[in-house]
Design a protein around this nucleic acid. Structure first.
Lengths: 240, 240
DNA sequence: CGTATAATTGACGACGGTCAAGCAAGGTGG
DNA sequence: CCACCTTGCTTGACCGTCGTCAATTATACG
């Protein structure tokens, strides 16, 4: 069931009852495969449905008038990047695929009806958006207060733990379709400088990264470099 | 009534019914005056109540291990900076007063009970936290993609519009208890550089700022300098 | 008045941006 | 099967925005 991953993500705080889970499973879902680098929804849109990632990877971003781009977050299996459209009519960011992805859509009406009957589902959805905020705060502190090396280390740590939490890590390695430009846009750096730092981290044996795979060779060191503390991710589940 | 400002802030999207408003007004509130520069709640706390600003100004921030500080947002009359504690147990940021402020506290239990009876209140609270996220995103883009001059201009525009929306603007001027260090900590800059830019903006006649008052002399220009578009604030109300 | 807080100024240097070119890999088509 | 193109990564040279350090000047407050 494609919605399972989404349910599991929502369940990090409280487990749903059987009825709650059934209510979610009965939601009508439209499923699509979207190629890498496509927009799923755009800034300015007024969505009537929310989307969630079934497989692959997406990101939310915004263009600045100067032509630069800020990436706000990366989204992986189970994440719902535009839950906020349930309460804010106009979308203030674009959601695009990083890798070729499978995406599910659920109409607002259907979700709102489920919410009206199941307050704990409302709470879980609300909570999901609050975790997004927590990630935003951490990214803000990252971008605002740290140098390039720490920012990049921090991001890599985050991506690893999030992948691991949904069972996508093989030992110390994860699939990593993100490009260096994306990292640059996410961290407020230039591609050139991202590359310089990545070279460093590689030559120092902290990471191995290539062919869409990121291998964190020295977790402890990378974590220290990035001043990374994982609590903000609110991961309670360990992958199977 | 001290809670009125909070109710008005929540009402930017939908007006409450008479019963809803009464339910909110019956909430038991503890009210305190807190001097400038004090912590209201701290990172790591597990609050059992939420706070809201009745008068004055507060900010949310976090210390980085390097000794630096990131300010995430400023909060003025009507804002509730820690609604997220309703669903995330451990607070990931500290809330402190910028100016001497009057703060109200409401117990989680009381709010949760009102929410269970009034889904539209739940929605309004949720929405309030989503607007916070929208502000985070915009700050992130600001910090990540713009130079010091644009960042500062943008922040001043935001603070003006938010003050104006709650009726605290006198023509083109607002009370501005924020210090240059605070701006530096909010925008990822050094105080020295903030000062340099502020000098510029003053000498070019864009702003007048001193003695706790900010006067925006050339709104249009400042807005352009900061590439400021106010939609993300979701202000629907104009001050009386 | 002395002390603390905040703003201000100047000198100096570094982190990271910009520009530009080169390289590697993969896909496409003739 | 190989020329060609695109996409992403890599490298080097140069330079500017902004940080750091340090000292000086307001402003407020007890």
């Amino acid at each position: 069931m494609p919605i399972t991953s989404f349910i599991r993500t929502l369940e990090t705080a409280v487990k749903f009852s059987h009825e709650e889970e059934q209510a979610l499973r009965k939601l009508p879902i439209r499923e699509t495969e979207i190629k890498a680098g496509q927009d799923i929804v755009r800034e300015g849109d007024q969505p009537t449905r929310v989307c969630f990632v079934i497989a692959g990877m997406a990101c939310t971003s915004r263009m600045i008038t100067t032509g630069r781009r800020q990436i706000f977050n990366f989204h992986m299996t189970g994440d719902a990047p535009d839950l906020l459209s349930l309460h804010l009519d106009v979308l203030d960011h674009t959601i695009s695929t990083i890798a070729t992805s499978r995406v599910g859509f659920i109409h607002h009406d259907a979700i709102k009806e489920v919410c009206s009957k199941h307050p704990r589902i409302t709470a879980a959805l609300w909570r999901h958006t609050l975790i997004d905020s927590a990630i935003f705060r951490t990214w803000m502190a990252n971008i605002g207060q740290k140098n390039a090396r720490a920012r990049i280390s921090h991001l890599l740590c985050e991506m690893f733990l999030r992948s691991e939490a949904i069972g996508l890590a093989k030992d110390s390695a994860i699939a990593f379709p993100i490009k260096q430009v994306d990292i640059a846009d996410a961290l407020g750096l230039s591609v050139v400088h991202v590359n310089r730092v990545v070279q460093e981290l590689r030559s120092e044996g902290l990471i191995a990264w290539g062919n869409g795979t990121l291998d964190i060779l020295k977790w402890q060191s990378l974590q220290e470099e990035g001043d990374f503390a994982p609590e903000y991710l609110h991961i309670t589940r360990k992958a199977a």
